[in-house]
Design a protein around this nucleic acid. Structure first.
Lengths: 354, 354
DNA sequence: TTGTAGGCGTTATCAT
DNA sequence: ATGATAACGCCTACAA
């Protein structure tokens, strides 16, 4: 019944050679005769031998597992990113151990403990929105576990990270709007603590100023990503006496909630007020009112890049025998896309190139 | 720099006892004195000892990894299911190795090879839509790797599976519609090959007949889940001379595409024609026209149940020392939910309880 | 109650 | 070019 896979020893016994010989033949070690190598490989083939990765990894003191921690896997952005990670990871025989922080530092800390316990070879993480310090993560470096941050990255410190240049994304958007005559622009930003939020705000402010437009901070609001919070943000924005012509939302979920607010307040979406989102997920195409302008943040690519960075770090660690390489940083540019909203009355069409 | 975790031997040396003693103390083996046990545990605590799971698993010839294969992780249904799996898995110290078949048997076969190579302890899988035979999966049982199917399960054969009772779901829906005076009901079903599709069709036909309603097969169509295919299905359905009053879609993505078709053909959605979906994902609440009736298929719960089933199988395998338990089957009932579509003109409201 | 010895499958370091 | 041996960290008969 129980069909058990042959081991290296089994091959050795049948061929009456030593285990080391077999091992060498199987990894194409040069210190072996061509004849025996072929003989061994043939036998391995016949027996359906498969190297026991568990044993190898154990021997080599590695796990070939990399930890991945994101706020929510159910968000398309992150599941996409995970796929990107998984794609390049599996090509290099790495396996993913993933966990969700549910945007809560405490969960994040628990997960860090787990990946440490599992002795992962490395960690790729996108911070929870409530994470203000990364000391729990820094602890990993003491155990020589390299960490790559992506998307939600810590602001400062010598860390490896890949993220999207939302500053430039913000500029692209504002430029596009302004060149279409839209100058009263509101922003629903993410929690001010997040680096990305600061970048967005800076991009917004500086780009506005470049156009000699005064920045009205009543047009800038924050959300903690919850529906209520977003609705609150909308309320404060729409209540200034000269309301905005455009509302930029920090992401598609916030965008959808903002649209929901607008509709329930009889605001003509994408007509009276133009809606813009800083990210661009496939689902929005099914929504009532998609954003007229959005930014692709390339989550899949970000994931792939993060994993590649980790692989690089592994390699360099082997070469340099140890430590102290300087942190790696990769920035990826978001891509501005125009959508159209068939449902909007007299949907605005953008003409001018940015 | 490199802080390396202490091993069992380290503790043994410091306490001047043997490794086996330490091992026993740490697993609360009864064959050890209370004093030494406490002493050992204290030292372990002090040193920050953490059992090397890799070594343990290697020794015990298990991996504590379970493979999970789904068509797409980006679909909320499956990412939800994976979370359910992950939740109970992590509670029992199991780790997930996931892969996506992208609804293609060939990928599925490749993934099966991989999980076999990784020597997973078990597999949870939701079949690709193009999988007609499960012989590639049956191969796993030869290596004593138990398999649990979920949601997209094979029709016949003695397999372990957990799935949603779409037959009854279909009945619930038809009953609800009929009791509200809607009798011309169309169905956009999934590929006929899938078990679930057959169940849906049976539920539809038999429930209609229970109500003495004649079944018009021109009102029944199939989609391969692609947009074009769904649009084609809609076309054929809406073109019969007396068109349906309701359209039931196999899932939310198909539903959204069906709505899209309807809108572009000036059909008043959820007014002239009522739209119903056989699943119920959060995203639909943001869509232009959510289904007025939907079924919760509880993906998270399905995932959790599948994982629990696997754990049961593991346990029983230990007890019975080996094989031949009869296959396990768990069926979960879908829950009918009513939504409302604020956007529909004169949106139909259902009054009668089913 | 505790220690000793052997082994899981593989690789690395010596020899030969 | 090949073999013998030890070791990775842990567990488990068996012995004491």
């Amino acid at each position: 019944m129980r069909e058990t896979l042959p081991t290296l020893k089994e091959i050795a016994k049948r061929l009456d050679v030593s285990a080391s010989t077999v091992s060498r033949a199987l990894v194409d070690n040069p210190r072996i005769g061509l004849g025996t190598r072929l003989k061994v490989q043939k036998m391995a083939e016949e027996l359906g031998y498969e190297r026991n990765t568990q044993a190898v990894n154990f021997k080599l003191k590695r796990t070939n597992i990399i930890g991945v921690i994101v706020p929510y896997v159910r968000e398309e952005f992150f599941s996409d990113a995970i796929c990107g990670i998984e794609e390049v990871a599996s090509q290099h025989n790495y396996t993913i151990l993933f966990g969700q922080s549910y945007d809560d530092v405490n969960n994040e800390m628990r997960l860090i403990e787990i990946v440490k316990k599992k002795r992962v070879d490395g960690l790729i993480i996108s911070l929870s929105k409530s994470t203000s310090s990364t000391s729990h993560i820094d602890a990993l470096s003491r155990f020589n576990i390299p960490v790559v941050y992506f998307d939600r990255v810590p602001e400062a410190g010598p860390v490896n990270k890949v993220y999207c240049d939302v500053y430039s994304g913000m500029c692209q958007i504002v430029t596009k709007l302004v060149s279409n005559g839209i100058t009263r622009i509101a922003l629903i930003n993410g929690p001010g603590m997040l680096t990305a939020s600061k970048d967005r705000l800076n991009g917004y402010v500086e780009c506005m100023e470049n156009f000699k437009l005064k920045v009205d901070m009543r047009m800038v609001s924050e959300t903690d990503f919850s529906v209520e919070s977003t609705h609150g943000a909308m309320r404060s924005i729409m209540n200034v006496k000269v309301p905005p012509q455009a509302v930029i939302s920090v992401n598609d979920y916030v965008h959808m909630d903002a649209v929901q607010y607008a509709r329930s307040h009889k605001i003509k979406v994408n007509n009276e007020v133009i809606f813009v989102s800083l990210s661009n997920l496939p689902i929005t195409s099914y929504t009532i009112h998609p954003p007229l302008i959005a930014l692709k943040q390339h989550p899949h690519k970000q994931g792939a890049m993060a994993m590649n960075m980790l692989l690089q770090i592994f390699e360099d660690k082997l070469k340099s025998g140890g430590n102290l390489e300087k942190p790696r940083v990769q920035v990826i540019s978001p891509t501005l896309v125009q959508c159209n909203d068939s449902k909007a009355e007299n949907s605005t069409v953008f003409k001018h190139a940015s």
